[in-house]
C-alpha cells in the first residue's frame, strides 16, 4: 500500500478538510502518520488551524509554524525532505491550482523513491470543474507543475450546507464521466459523515464520510 498520499486540485475543491479526515483515519492503522500542509498560497482556512488537535492524536504536523503560519509568503518547512526519506505514512495537502502544486515539482524527485498515490480532488459544483474541458485543462496544468502524473481521482461533490444525497449522486455521476474520459480510477468519494449511511450501499468501499473541522459553526 502507498505510504505517501498527495492531494491536489483546483482552489476550494475541498482538499484541506479531506486531508484532515484522511490523516485521522490513517492514524487508526498507523502510528507514524505525518501530515504535511504545503498550502503555501493562502493561509485562510487551511489545515494547520487544527494543529493542536492533530498533535494530541500523535499525528506529526509539518507546516509553517508560529508567526509564519500567517506569513503570506511561500514557506516550505525544512524538515519535509528529511521526513520524505524516512519510513512513515505521509499525507500531503497542496494549495489549489497549478501555483499550489508547484512545490510538488520541487519535491517530486524524493517522492518518486516512495510508493505514492497522487490524487486529483474534484468538486463538480465549483466554477472551474463544471465541464470536461476545464477539468482536463486543470489536470494538465497540475501534472505539469507536479512533474508526476495523477494516479487517481477523489470525487468530492458538495454544496456545503445545501448538500443532499441527490446533489451528491448527480455530482458524482459527473465526476465519473470526467474520470472515464481522463482514464483515471476514482479512489474515493467523500461525503459529510451524516450522508454516509444513506449512500454506503450504493457506493461501497470508495465512500469516505468526513467531518468538517475548518469551518466555524456560524458560517
Amino acid at each position: 500500500m502507498a505510504n505517501v498520499i498527495i492531494f491536489a486540485g483546483g482552489f476550494g475543491s475541498g482538499k484541506s478538510e479531506l486531508v484532515l479526515n484522511y490523516a485521522i483515519r490513517k492514524r487508526e492503522q498507523s502510528d507514524r502518520v505525518v501530515l504535511a500542509d504545503l498550502d503555501l498560497v493562502n493561509p485562510y482556512f487551511v489545515s494547520r488551524d487544527i494543529r493542536k488537535t492533530l498533535e494530541n492524536m500523535d499525528i506529526r504536523v509539518v507546516a509553517p509554524s508560529g508567526e509564519l503560519s500567517f506569513g503570506d509568503v511561500p514557506n516550505i518547512p525544512a524538515e519535509i525532505i528529511g521526513l520524505l526519506r524516512q519510513e512513515n505514512d505521509m499525507i500531503i495537502d497542496l494549495a489549489g491550482d497549478e501555483v499550489g502544486t508547484l512545490v510538488l515539482g520541487y519535491l517530486s524527485r524524493y517522492i518518486k523513491d516512495r510508493y505514492y498515490e497522487f490524487y486529483m480532488v474534484i468538486n463538480p459544483y465549483r466554477p472551474f470543474a463544471q465541464d470536461l474541458e476545464s477539468v482536463t485543462e486543470l489536470k494538465q496544468l497540475l501534472e505539469g507543475a507536479a512533474h508526476i502524473p495523477f494516479t487517481g481521482i477523489v470525487s468530492n461533490p458538495n454544496l456545503l450546507g445545501e448538500t443532499t444525497p441527490e446533489i451528491i449522486r448527480a455530482g458524482h455521476e459527473k465526476v465519473r464521466g470526467y474520470a472515464q474520459e481522463m482514464n483515471l480510477p476514482i479512489r474515493l468519494l467523500t461525503v459529510e459523515s451524516k450522508f454516509h449511511d444513506a449512500l454506503v450501499n450504493q457506493y461501497g468501499e470508495i465512500l469516505l464520510g468526513i467531518n468538517l473541522y475548518l469551518k466555524p459553526d456560524w458560517m
Partner: peptide, 15 residues
C-alpha cells in the same frame, strides 16, 4: 439554474 459553490472573491469577479 443549478447552484455553484463559489468563494466570495470568485463570485464578485463573476458578478
Amino acid at each position: 439554474m443549478p447552484k455553484v459553490l463559489m468563494k466570495g472573491n470568485e463570485a464578485l469577479a463573476e458578478g
